[in-house]
Every structure is written in structure tokens, then in C-alpha cells.
Design a binder for these strands. Sequence first.
DNA 1: CTTGACCTTCCAATGATGGGAAGGTCCACC
DNA 2: GGTGGACCTTCCCATCATTGGAAGGTCAAG
Lengths: 140, 140
Amino acid sequence: MNIGQASDASGVSAKMIRYYEQIGLIRPMGRTGNNYRVYGDEEVHILRFIKRARNLGFSLEETETLLKLWQDKDRTSASVKEVAEVHIVDLERRIAEMQGMVKTLKHLSHCCSGDDRPNCPILDDLAGAAPAPVPAKKRA
Amino acid sequence: MNIGQASDASGVSAKMIRYYEQIGLIRPMGRTGNNYRVYGDEEVHILRFIKRARNLGFSLEETETLLKLWQDKDRTSASVKEVAEVHIVDLERRIAEMQGMVKTLKHLSHCCSGDDRPNCPILDDLAGAAPAPVPAKKRA
DNA sequence: CTTGACCTTCCAATGATGGGAAGGTCCACC
DNA sequence: GGTGGACCTTCCCATCATTGGAAGGTCAAG
């Protein structure tokens, strides 16, 4: 199997497959006489694992951890669960942050008449809200 | 006012102020004889505007649009509202995406015993196994 | 033999920011 | 006058994950 076929079978672009090899996420593949990389079912399986982890929002670093745990027959399910739960907390923090933005924006947008006149509370807010005060440094 | 003071007053790092100038988001500042950039209250006001927009999750490109609208006295509030609402939709799409991830992960994590044994439905899912069965309701 | 679809490596860009080196400048203090 | 340190300048590099493209080799069908 060439890299293009492995890409089609796994959903990971050929570019990314080479990159994953380069950064050591996957092992360097064997080559044919023409210097083409050769893939088998196991490699495709690994690539699919990576793809799914990425789809779930795991970073490549987290994915590497999960991949090693997957391949470690002596791992504990607790160690995997820990990685997942840390990631859940991180996702939830980012979700909350974005929800805060949406809430503010919706409020501003709701207050904005959205007509031909220039008066706009959205811009007023952007222009007027002061950032958190910075503690004074030793500067004249 | 030097760049450091403008930075403190606006909450935008000196690095970023120079970068914003470089990419044309803000106009090149006047220089003193010693080649230091000079800032006034208006520039700080603009920087605060940018900071606030970034805090609301607008990209630099969107921020540039808003900045131009802010400085255009003939803009319509509708044009601003449009930018905001497109951004809201985008944020909500990303929120929904992450919520989907969290939901899947929580389900998998819930199904994982998290003990010393190696058996782990999280990895099974990533590997492409059949979805983990839902455990009996609130009785773990 | 040509054509087109592959493959290879290498370099660069994205978006927004941080880090740091190397060198110039200003000011306060001794 | 000299010194130290806080500030400024430009320039390059790193991040994270991914895409794009150039330049060149290889393969299979027509």
C-alpha cells in the first residue's frame, strides 16, 4: 500500500502522514526499491486511531500519550481515563470562555438597532470598556 | 509616551503593538530623535479597542473591519451588527463542535472503570471498536 | 513514447503571540 | 564623569497543525 492509499483508508492526508513520521508520532515506514513508503493494515489502524483522537480535540501530544497507552498492554484503564478527563476539563473551560463571548456579543447586538444610522452600542462598548488596571511600575 | 507606557495603558504588549503596526492594523507611529515610537491618548484608545475586540474572540481581520467602521462616522449600525452576528454564528458553531467532543468523551469516560485493569472503552473507541454499551442508569 | 497520476524532499506560509539576541539610549545616582 | 539598569530598536526563531507548492523521480496505461 502506498501513502496515497493509506491516506484514503485512514482519512489522514499524505502530508500529515509524512509529518507524523517526521515528528516521531509514528515509526518510519519501510520503503520499496523506488523509495516509496509502504503501509499495511496495522499502520492504517494506527492512523485511524490518530485521526479519531484528533477529531475528539486531543492535541498531537495527548494523542501520542494515548497511542502509547493503546500499545501498552499493561496500561491501566485509570491512566487513560485521566488523560481523557484532563482533556474534558480543558474543553469545558474553553467552551465556557466562548459562551461568555457569545453572551456579551448577543447582548450588544440586541441593543444595536441595526439600521442606517451610525449610532452603535457594539462599537461604543469596544471603544469604552477599560481593561483591568495594571499595577504601576517604576516608570516616569 | 513610549511604547512601554502605551502597552501598560492599553493592555497590549509592546511586541504586539509593533506587530500591529507592521501588518498595517495601526498606522506607523511618529518617532523621536532617538528613534523611539511616540504614542498619544488617541493611539492608546485605539489599542484598547483592539484589545477589547480580541478579548471577544474577533480575529485580527475582523478587528480591522470593526476598527475601520469605528473610525467611519458614516457607517451604519447595521454594518457593525452584521460583523458581530457572523462572529456569533461562528462562535456558536465551534461551541457546538466542542460540546459534541465533550459529550462523547464523557460517555466514554463514564464507561471506563478507571482502575488497575487494562480494559478501556476509551481506547477501544479510538481504535475503532464497537461503541461502548451504556451502563445501567444511575446505579454504577 | 507520452501523458498523467503518483511518489519523493525541501521550503514556505498560515494566526497570534512569545522569547531572546545584539545593539542603541536615557536617566538617576555616586 | 562614569556606571548600571531600564528602556528602546530591529531581526530571527519557536509555537501548533496543517496546507501549498516547486522540482524532480517513478510507474502504468494508451
